[in-house]
């Protein structure tokens, strides 16, 4: 019998704990497929965040480190400096990367640290039950912005790609989404490019992936995807924000 689809070797057999309709699962799969395709003979270290993807160390089938909340880029820096020939990636949510871990991500980019970051932006704190994130949209209701995010009170949502693209030694920054097949393929391509640049010894790369949190948005999986398309993509435009390696 011909095998038409199977689990990728770079995912373990452990069932995901993610909610139905959550995009973390799709993004995990894409990262794992890229790891399969790169054929690195085991020289991979992934760094998991604190957030819903905290158990990424149980899912990615490679050496894994669980970092403190927001510190993954510093942990990855330590690994990369100790083992420069290893592919080192971080997988982080928006609370992790864009709030508590801003210093670590900005300075990893600033140093041109040769690591790759997969940044999953779902505009909310998923794991702790739906609090406001720095990425929460204006007017978006969360458990800590019950009347909707008030820009005058807590600022406009932070745009990490735009911010990190402005850092001199970041190398490649792209924002993607996994809301349809075309975008899923684009996201995988972006992740692969980020990892390949690292293997070529280029600088810091980040792929932001807009993602749903049906559970804490209070929407069905289908409604959540629609909400992402109608609200997140217009505010967080998809595309390449920086690519120092692009053919000129």
């Amino acid at each position: 019998m011909a095998v038409v689809f199977e689990k990728t070797p770079h995912l373990t057999d452990k069932p995901f704990h993610y909610c139905p309709g959550c995009n973390h699962g799709i993004i995990h799969r894409l990262v794992a497929e890229v790891l399969d395709e790169l054929d690195l003979d085991g020289d991979i270290v992934g760094v998991a965040p604190v957030g819903c993807s905290v158990f990424a160390y149980d899912y990615f089938n490679c050496d894994m480190i669980e970092a403190a909340h927001g510190r993954a880029p510093a942990v990855a820096t330590g690994v990369k400096r100790a083992k420069p020939d290893t592919l080192v990636f971080t997988y982080q949510g928006d609370g992790d990367l864009a709030s508590i871990g801003t210093a670590e991500i900005v300075h990893a980019a600033h140093r041109g640290e040769k690591i790759s970051t997969v940044f999953v932006n779902n505009a909310i704190y998923g794991m702790t039950g739906g609090q406001m994130a720095p990425t929460t949209l204006v007017g978006q209701k969360t458990t800590t912005s019950p009347n909707g995010r008030d820009e005058a009170w807590c600022g406009a949502p932070i745009k990490m790609c735009e911010m990190l693209a402005a850092v001199p030694d970041s190398y490649y920054i792209e924002r993607c989404a996994v809301n349809n097949n075309a975008n899923i393929i684009k996201t995988k391509r972006a992740i692969k490019k980020a990892f390949q640049y690292q293997l070529e010894g280029k600088g810091f790369c980040m792929v932001e992936v807009l993602s749903t949190c049906p559970t804490n948005w209070g929407l069905s999986p289908v409604e959540a995807m629609k909400w992402l398309e109608e609200n997140m993509i217009p505010y967080y435009p998809l595309g390449v924000y920086k690519d120092k390696g692009a053919a000129k």
Partner: peptide, 14 residues
């Protein structure tokens, strides 16, 4: 110092 100890954490992991 926060980053420094986390770099230690990463490097020591190897």
């Amino acid at each position: 110092e926060v980053a420094a100890i986390n770099m230690v954490y990463g490097a020591a992991s190897t």
